[in-house]
Write a protein that binds this DNA or RNA. Sequence first.
DNA 1: GCGAGCCATAAATTAAACTTATGGATAACA
DNA 2: TGTTATCCATAAGTTTAATTTATGGCTCGC
Lengths: 322, 322
Amino acid sequence: MLNLNQLRIFYHVARRLSFTAAAGDLFISQPAVSAQIKCFEDFCGLRLLKKRGRTLHLTDEGMALYDYARKIFECEREIENALEDMRALKRGVLRLGTTKTYARYFMPDLITRFHEAFPNIKVQLNEGSSLEMTESLLDFQNEVAIVAKAVEHPDVVFKPFSQEEVVLVSSPGHPAGEKVHLTLEELTHEPIIMKEKGSGTRKLVAEAFSKKGLVPNILMETSNTEFIKQLVQRGEGIAFLVRAAIALELQEGKLRILRIAEKPLFLDVSIAHLKGQSLSPPAKVFLEMLSNIAAAGGAPNKGLRSLMADVLASHWSRPSRP
Amino acid sequence: MLNLNQLRIFYHVARRLSFTAAAGDLFISQPAVSAQIKCFEDFCGLRLLKKRGRTLHLTDEGMALYDYARKIFECEREIENALEDMRALKRGVLRLGTTKTYARYFMPDLITRFHEAFPNIKVQLNEGSSLEMTESLLDFQNEVAIVAKAVEHPDVVFKPFSQEEVVLVSSPGHPAGEKVHLTLEELTHEPIIMKEKGSGTRKLVAEAFSKKGLVPNILMETSNTEFIKQLVQRGEGIAFLVRAAIALELQEGKLRILRIAEKPLFLDVSIAHLKGQSLSPPAKVFLEMLSNIAAAGGAPNKGLRSLMADVLASHWSRPSRP
DNA sequence: GCGAGCCATAAATTAAACTTATGGATAACA
DNA sequence: TGTTATCCATAAGTTTAATTTATGGCTCGC
């Protein structure tokens, strides 16, 4: 097998046409170069260098080999650059999993912030239910997931990140809107358009009902929040949705929030990643960023030029739960 | 500096996604692989491999590095192939210097033979005077030279290869042709068209004259043998030329040989190369081929499809000098 | 739950690479 | 033309790096 250390020494000798100079470049002694070149020529079974007087020349074979060696060590240089870029976060991938709702209403801001700090890290955003995204960590599809804590897993760490209020919404003219405080019992008579099974919202709502021994009247279910909003606007039913998801519709008066007699529903959003320090540099800094945001109470990024600015503002400035 | 041994081990681990399998491929023990991979990750400052259960995965950084590593080791494979080809003479260059006359009249046969034996060795034929070609060995322009031994040189070996008869030629109707045996004295009255200084033929002829204290009557001189033949055919003068160079013209009756009273002139042709075993494999086998040819008395290659066949035949079948 | 397979770890060994010291050859310089 | 500096070769000794053997832990399939 080719000894690449010897090839490296040969490369430097060929480049400088001097054993001594090559030794200097490589920070080794001249006899070390002599010995390795000799070994290398023996291995090759070819003379690679000729000496005339005290000037060194490459043989034809040496030339051919030098051409190849240059390719290899150019490639080595590329590797070193790539390594440096990866270490310095000038290059890399952040594979991130979130729920559809989160991806739609909260991620644009987060990703924009991340890109501002690390412009060269590609973000690959994958969507799925909280459970799917948590499981996607286990087979390395994603490195970080932002989810409603679904199922505890021994190898996954969940860090609380934020709490999203889940509100009951109807069309502005919906008769249920007359009541000041709707009870869950009363709601069982109303057709509800529900998020799909596996959804964090669905789980939260379902638990609220079942805690009282009640069964909601589910008219239909879908994972498509926009679709739910459309149906609710048309008065087909009412729905439980994350407040931030309906910010625009509230502003425009297309939807209204129905007050319920219960204490407000909050969806716990967590950052999930595998246990252990096995995070890539991009994932590490992303988690750091999220920690900082969480610690700062989710203060909005004022410099953000996102179209979602208003929606996001309503998200980040929501009053924290008592 | 990147440790290419470690990169190699990483490459095999990444390829097989198994430390044990990689160890097998590399004919080393599994702990050796573990240790080197650990060193390599430390050097990189990045985790390159992840273990889930007992299956190994590449991290994103590992993937990136693996892509580079593949390039490097593909290139290494190319080097190994190139080395093997060069050793096996399936690839290489033979840089050969000869005189113009030799290149024109004898080399086609030699090169054809050589190519038949070593089809993949490129022959680079350089022409110049015997002296120039001998000197071209010293600065490695050529590795082998076929020359009239010009000047002895301590670093150059001359091996006698053949002797080419130099004959005096005139046009068929030239008045000098009436004489049966021309003496050199008589020739001093004839205008001679002479090869250029530095030419082996010129040197041979000049010595023959000067040995008798005579000075030839040189009408003109040129290195272009074809031009000399043209002038002689037109009756502008007579010339000394290597017999093989005028074989066609003799056959066609365009030139005639003038008998001289002297004993025939023979030009000693030698193979010259640098002293020492510093010859490339192509040069070595070429010299071997020449030795065989010389030993066999220069027997013609009957399979030769060269246009020069006749000319060459007259060369190889000439009676050897007593 | 038991055993086979795979990787990690530690200590000891081996082999490769390197250094220092020195000598010979070449070319530049006086 | 001798002198000197430079460069490579050689040899012996040293150091570092890589590797092996031995072992233990963990995971997965049975």
